[in-house]
Amino acid sequence: MRLVGVHGVSKVFANGVKALADISLDVQSGEFLSVLGPSGCGKSTLLRLIAGLAEPTAGTIDWADEGRRGTDLGFVFQEPTLMPWTTALKNVGLPLKLRGVARGEREARAAQALDQVGLKGFERAFPRELSGGMKMRVSLARALVVEPRLLLMDEPFAALDEITRHKLNDDLLELWRRTGVTVVFVTHSVFESVFLSQRIVVMAARPGRVSTELAIAEPYPRRAGFRTSAEYAAQCREASQHLAKAMVTA
């Protein structure tokens, strides 16, 4: 079943730069979809359009059934984007606060979300007291606390070291399985996209457009063993070839 439909969307910035040209894309309910492309191909712009943070110049984006509600979305940015002046708990509870949820319920749900991402006991910690990976977990908890239908992630782990990134990838898949949330994951890493997703949309740059789409058949749960398997290597090679082709035609 389709959750979000992107129909012929283009985006031209005020300075005349054509960021996206005629993108069409269906996001299926419950799937893990990656958007893979070189930097500057407009993947982040696409995510912002789906989030409603910017308006498309042409085309439409629609939501299934009753449309988009205020708490349908979780967004994880490239940076943890936490408020440095307050605790992890208050940071996670922010979306609920902005949606007018009462304090008691807010704190209970925020504590639960922190627990979900493995940060039980860090409720009172300030962001500066946390490591890069832990800050990203807080950011993830904040996106999940509203129990969104759609989780948008914009290269969230790009700035982390490889060990931390692998651990977060494993945990993200576990969270996805447990919550049933739909994920759109933007990345420039072939390895990350193949490990995580059921479906990869490869984008080409200037202007940003969909180059090709490929499915990763490997069943879940995918564990550390998958990263060293021959199938994984083969899938990565295929995805790399598609990406290379997208970059040549760009």
Binding site: A51, G52, L53, G70, L73, E79, P95, L98
Partner: peptide, 14 residues
């Protein structure tokens, strides 16, 4: 102000 946080506030209708 962190532009990401501004986005977040906009996202949840602040």
């Amino acid at each position: 102000v962190d532009p990401g946080l501004l986005d977040l506030f906009q996202l949840y209708g602040a």
